[in-house]
């Protein structure tokens, strides 16, 4: 008996360690593939097991998106109705109707076979600034401004060993918004001597594919007026729009984490009960 328990414990300990490592491999692979980019971790209201989006922040981020980014970046997967859904920016239905109505949407054909423009409705998607990708490229020196719908999940920084193992326990999932924030605040006029800038590109050491990015610095202080008294700085603008993009990429994040907490508590109690039951069942059996 002593013997068996010993090998079993060894086996299990090592198995668990092995499994952890193997799981970790996944992320190491993923992260390396993205790039060797490191970003600074920021504080986000939606991080951690009880994370929630800050409604005011999402509304500000939406303001930055509409006033600034939407000139070049589409948000194809979102509809106006998403703005009023639970866990989101928390606009009222009337507000969203008004937002939608400002946009003109091509509809049709009517009974004469003609296409016509009408004001946007709740179910309409956000309009794209470009008719197609080619037009977007042509207007931007060949660099297509990426769609915003999933960008916060499609970008990640290198975590490396052993950080990615700790990430499992700290639930670090904010690499995307961290990267976006880093990029937006990372523009620098001090181009290192060894970097030869190509015409039309801007120096930004926080860019995922090199240090030269086609997008000019999009934000400047006091460019947008906040009605809630938040600081009108590049830092705050970047933070707000990154949070908004995280919501756009994962609109059910709040619901997911809240449900996760309940599920885990339930499973832990259930596991405890099963363990006690198992002990009772085996109480008089040596094994």
């Amino acid at each position: 008996m002593r013997f068996k328990d010993n090998t079993m414990t060894t086996f299990l300990t090592k198995t668990v360690a092995t499994a952890t490592l193997i799981v970790g491999m996944a992320f190491s692979g993923a992260a390396i593939a993205a790039s060797e980019l490191h970003v600074e971790e920021q504080d986000w209201s939606f991080a951690g097991p009880f994370g929630k989006f800050d409604q005011a922040q999402l509304q500000r981020g939406f303001q930055i998106y509409t006033e600034n980014c939407s000139a070049c970046h589409s948000l194809n997967l979102l509809s106006f109705r998403n703005l009023m859904q639970e866990g989101g920016p928390g606009f009222s239905e009337a507000e969203v109707r008004a937002i939608a109505a400002e946009v003109s949407v091509l509809d049709g054909p009517d009974s004469d076979g003609e296409m016509f423009d009408r004001p946007g409705r709740l179910a309409d998607r956000f309009p794209s600034p470009w008719a197609n990708e080619e037009q977007g490229r042509a207007s931007n020196n060949g660099a297509y401004p990426p769609d915003f719908s999933l960008l916060a999940k499609a970008r990640a920084a290198t975590r490396g060993f052993p950080t990615f193992v700790f990430d499992i326990f700290t639930q670090y999932q904010e690499s995307g918004p961290d990267y976006i924030y880093g990029l937006l605040t990372g523009y620098s006029a001090d181009v290192p001597a060894d970097v030869e800038m190509l015409p039309g590109l801007n120096y930004n050491p926080h860019y995922i594919s090199g240090v030269q990015i086609a997008m000019a610095p999009p934000l400047s202080a006091d460019q947008h007026e906040y009605s809630d008294g938040s600081p009108q700085t590049v830092d705050q603008y970047a933070r707000d729009v990154a949070a908004f993009m995280m919501w756009a990429a994962e609109p059910h994040l709040v619901e997911r984490k809240a449900m996760g907490f309940r599920v885990l508590i339930f499973l832990l109690i259930f596991a405890g009960l099963l363990y006690l039951t198992k002990r009772k069942v085996f109480a008089s059996v040596k094994h």
């Binding site: 799981v23 996944a26 992320f27 692979g29 993923a30 593939a33 993205a34 097991p49 999933l150 999940k153 499609a154 970008r155 990640a156 990430d167 499992i168 639930q171 999932q173 690499s175 995307g176 990429a249 997911r256 984490k257 449900m259 996760g260 907490f261 599920v263 885990l264 499973l267 832990l268 596991a271």
Partner: peptide
């Protein structure tokens, strides 16, 4: 419990960010 930890808190940990492009 481990499974739920990933599903609810780290759902994209084992995936690749490029697959959201």
């Amino acid at each position: 419990v481990v499974y739920a930890w990933f599903v609810f808190y780290l759902p994209n940990f084992m995936g690749h960010p490029d697959n959201y492009i």
